[in-house]
């Protein structure tokens, strides 16, 4: 017998044949089995509202990650209040670029993951850490692409591993993953990565970099992205997760509504051509 209560009291298929869902006009029941739709099944073929780069870097005792608050509809700046950094558990940040509706779906499944792992009967067990979150997301992303129904995003997971070392790993709509000491998505991989790799040439070099240095390069990168990425915004959020070496505790700092500082526009007055009306 089928133990789902919604099936109780139904005549059995073996004896009476398939249940006729049109009885009592019960059209809403079991629609997923009926497949009488006039339309073929459609999956995402392109993103609609998009968020641009997420950039991130490790430093000696922590990690910093930043993303602006713009949601673009093609070349239209449709929203400027989208938070693209998601906190998961107590010491992990997930930064998402790409489709915003898929971002919101990911936000939802991560909240469900957090509740299942941390709220339900956590009888002194483990709490969610960044490698767990990344593994989960990479399984979701790869499964979705394998069903030809991708979540149109590039994602950076930042936090600490079980040995309290900084953890930074990427996953995208194809399920491709990689690790590095500096990761950026979208335009950031062209514009921010050179600046970040200048600070941290090799993966292991992040231990020679302190929080201030990393933060400065992230700020510089956000400025460069604002200058040159037409889909970027002036206001961004950034998060710092650091291990306080004295207390051994992990500290979490989430800054919203940060503005791109030190912009220099003096060159603008000298611009000729390109539609400029100056002579």
């Amino acid at each position: 017998m089928n133990h789902d209560p919604y099936y109780w009291g139904r005549p059995s298929d073996e004896v009476y044949g398939q249940y006729n869902y049109n009885i009592a006009n019960a059209k809403n029941v079991e629609q997923h089995n009926q497949n009488n739709s006039n339309f073929p099944k459609m999956n995402t073929q392109q993103p609609i509202i998009t968020g641009t780069s997420v950039i991130s870097s490790k430093f000696k005792n922590g990690i910093i990650i930043a993303a602006d608050n713009v949601g673009s509809y093609g070349s239209l700046m449709r929203f400027n209040n989208i938070e693209r950094l998601i906190k998961v558990g107590s010491q992990t940040i997930v930064g998402i670029s790409g489709d915003i509706s898929d971002l919101q779906y990911i936000q939802r499944i991560l909240d469900e993951l957090e509740i299942q792992q941390e709220v339900y009967d956590n009888d002194g067990g483990d709490f969610l850490i960044a490698p767990n979150v990344h593994e989960y997301l990479s399984r979701v992303m790869y499964n979705r692409r394998s069903n030809m129904n991708p979540l149109w995003n590039s994602i950076i997971v930042a936090g600490f591993d079980s040995e309290k070392k900084p953890f930074l790993r990427y996953v995208d709509l194809l399920g491709v993953t990689y690790h590095a000491s500096t990761i950026a998505t979208g335009f950031g991989s062209h514009l921010a990565i050179p600046l970040l790799r200048n600070l941290i040439p090799e993966n292991k070099d992040y231990i020679n970099v302190n929080e201030e240095q990393a933060k400065k390069v992230i700020e510089d990168s956000m400025r460069v992205l604002f200058y040159r990425d037409a889909r970027s915004g002036e206001v961004y959020s950034y998060a710092v997760i650091r291990l306080n070496e004295e207390t051994g505790k992990i500290e979490f700092e989430f800054n919203k509504k940060t503005k791109v500082e030190d912009q220099k526009w003096r060159f603008a007055k000298d611009i000729r051509g390109y539609g400029s009306t100056q002579h």
Binding site: I115, V119, Y120, D121, G124
Partner: peptide, 11 residues
Amino acid sequence: GKNKRIQTVDR
């Protein structure tokens, strides 16, 4: 202290 009887359903 284990085998808890009180459970959490949502936060």
